[in-house]
Measured scan of single mutants.
Amino acid sequence: KSIMKVYCQICRKGDNEELLLLCDGCDKGCHTYCHRPKITTIPDGDWFCPACIAKA
């Protein structure tokens, strides 16, 4: 079994998992407080990182 360690693409830390959003496009993580602008609430439904939005 392989366990994927998810970490924030900005701060490179994997702590505060409850505030770590996973992109529905690329599965990369980003803390709500590292994202600019900050994300104050966990979004309902799908969330896409800035890189995936730029590709769309």
Results as ranks from 00 to 15, higher is better:
T32D: 04
A51G: 14
L22R: 15
E17L: 12
Y33K: 07
H35M: 13
Y7M: 10
D27P: 05
R36Q: 08
G14P: 11
K28A: 09
M4F: 04
T40A: 06
P43N: 04
K13S: 07
G25N: 06
D24K: 12
A54V: 10
G14W: 08
I39V: 11
I39A: 09
G25F: 03
D44M: 09
D15S: 10
D24F: 03
Q9F: 08
G45S: 12
S2N: 02
Q9A: 08
G14Y: 15
L19R: 09
C11R: 00
V6F: 14
I53N: 04
I42K: 13
A51L: 11
D46Y: 02
T32Y: 12
I39H: 05
H31L: 00
I53H: 09
G25M: 09
K13H: 09
I39E: 14
A54H: 06
K5P: 05
I3N: 15
K1C: 03
C52I: 00
H31M: 01
R36M: 14
D44C: 14
P43H: 04
L22Q: 09
L22A: 14
C30P: 02
E17V: 14
G14M: 13
R12Q: 11
Y7G: 07
R12V: 09
C34N: 01
G14F: 07
C26M: 02
S2V: 06
W47I: 08
L20E: 03
F48V: 14
G29M: 03
D24R: 10
C11I: 00
D46F: 03
G45R: 13
H31T: 02
P37A: 10
K28C: 06
K38V: 08
G29Q: 10
R36F: 06
C30Q: 13
Y7F: 09
C30Y: 13
Q9G: 11
C11K: 00
F48P: 07
P37Q: 04
R12D: 12
C8E: 00
V6H: 11
G25D: 05
G14S: 14
A54N: 07
C52H: 02
M4N: 05
K5Y: 05
I53A: 11
I53S: 11
A54K: 11
D44R: 09
L21Y: 02
P37M: 04
K38N: 06
I10P: 02
K38P: 07
I10E: 15
I39G: 08
L20H: 03
D15N: 12
M4Y: 04
D27N: 08
D24E: 15
A51I: 06
K13P: 02
C11Q: 00
K55L: 00
V6L: 09
F48L: 10
I10R: 08
F48R: 13
N16F: 03
I42C: 15
M4G: 03
L21T: 11
I3Q: 15
A56V: 14
Y33S: 09
I10T: 12
E17P: 15
C23Y: 02
K28I: 03
G14C: 05
V6G: 11
L21A: 07
N16I: 08
P50E: 15
C34M: 01
T41F: 08
Q9E: 12
D44E: 04
E17N: 06
T41V: 10
C49L: 00
D27R: 07
Y7I: 05
A51D: 13
G45A: 06
C11E: 01
D24V: 14
N16P: 04
Y33F: 06
L20V: 09
C8H: 00
A56W: 03
I3Y: 03
C26V: 01
I10F: 05
T32E: 03
K5S: 12
K28E: 14
T40I: 07
N16E: 13
P43T: 13
L20A: 04
P43W: 05
T41L: 05
D27Y: 09
H31V: 01
C8A: 00
L20S: 03
L22C: 13
